[in-house]
Amino acid sequence: MGHNRKTWTVLLGLLAAAALLVSACGDDDDDDGIDAPAPDATGELSSGNEEEPRESATAVGTAAAGDAPDDDGFPLTVERSDGEELVIEEAPQRIVSLDASATEILYAIDAGDQIVAADLYSNFPEEALLKARLDAFAPSPEAILAEEPDLVLIFSNEGDIVSVLDDLGVEVLFLEPPAELDGIMERVELFGEITGHGEEAAAVASDMANRVDSIVEAVSGADEGPRVFHELDNTLFSVGPGSFIGDLYELLGAENVAAAAGQPFPQLTSEAIIAADPEVVILADEAFGETIETVSARPGWAVITAVREGRIHGVDPDIASRPGPRIVEFLELVAAYLYPELFE
């Protein structure tokens, strides 16, 4: 079954709003109505504007700078997602971030002024829109080299770009998105080490952990978690075990109706969702036209408890689908949707 570019970016991502066909997913059907696993996810679905004003290719970031990078702890050896090791000799000063989540993390730890270029979907904070813009899904070695980077951050090896940059002598850190919430906080701390902002990163990760603990404690008294369906797009891709979003629902004690697929980003059938009867539906595709009205109008969905009781909630896909500091905002928001009686 083909799927559009929005679906591709949704799926680690999850997470882009384009209509370009980029791949094909499996078409094997399971007995429970859940299709074969989707392709590798990007964790990024963005409704950001790709045409915002930007800096020139060699401009330095305009975000308020924090303390100067700390050169202690270098050289630093980091294992990439392809198993190769990258040795970073000193804190990079010209980072190309082809990962919107990485961009958000760098700004959160006061390393935004070390970014010289970012991918098309790096739209938070607003200062990121001023950076030179590069396409992470069709990466151009020439465009990357033009930025004279001392480090390139990549979450997906599109077009074997990692090997291409390796051969060109460019330092590239290929890190796939974390599969769980703890991994996101570890990623924050890692980026702190890499950029020389370890103290700032530790503070961000600690704040995230404290907020997570507060939410988990607040919902721990619930007798039973509700059944929930998390919709990535209107072709019914969802989240399951092995995805950081699936991990969030598990932390909240919810019964994820897509968990039975046993895959990070499964595609469900309408029949399977109706049979599972979710009590809450979370729409990560509201920015792309899905609403309580469109969901309620789907054939057969009128019998679903979430539809009958009006418990269909849209969420900002950038917050819901990016493994960065703002994922805690999503956790807090969804906790209130799942357990409204605990957050009145």
Rank of each mutant, 00 (worst) to 15 (best):
G2M: 08
G2R: 12
R5L: 14
R5N: 11
V10K: 12
L12T: 09
L12A: 12
G13M: 03
L14R: 12
A16H: 11
A24I: 11
A24L: 08
D27V: 13
D28A: 13
D29M: 14
D32Y: 07
G33C: 07
E44H: 12
E44M: 10
S46A: 12
N49C: 07
E50Q: 10
E52A: 15
R54G: 13
T62S: 09
G66W: 09
D67S: 14
D70F: 08
G73H: 03
G73L: 08
V78N: 00
E79W: 00
E84M: 07
L86C: 05
S97D: 03
L98R: 00
L98K: 00
E104A: 06
A117V: 10
D119Y: 04
F124A: 09
E126M: 03
A128M: 07
K131S: 05
D135P: 03
D135W: 11
A136M: 10
A136S: 14
F137H: 02
E142N: 03
D150I: 11
V164M: 01
V170M: 07
E176N: 04
I184M: 04
M185F: 14
E193V: 01
T195E: 09
H197Q: 15
A205H: 11
D207E: 15
R211E: 11
E224N: 05
G225N: 09
R227A: 15
F229G: 00
L236N: 06
V239G: 01
G240N: 03
G242S: 01
F244R: 01
F244W: 09
E250G: 03
E255A: 11
A258S: 15
A260K: 10
A261S: 15
T269Y: 07
E271N: 02
D277A: 06
P278Q: 02
E279N: 00
I282E: 03
T291K: 04
S296V: 03
A302H: 10
E309V: 04
I312D: 06
G314K: 10
P317K: 00
R322K: 04
V328N: 02
F330K: 00
F330N: 10
L331V: 15
Y337G: 00
E341G: 03
E341P: 06
E341H: 13
E341C: 04
L342V: 09
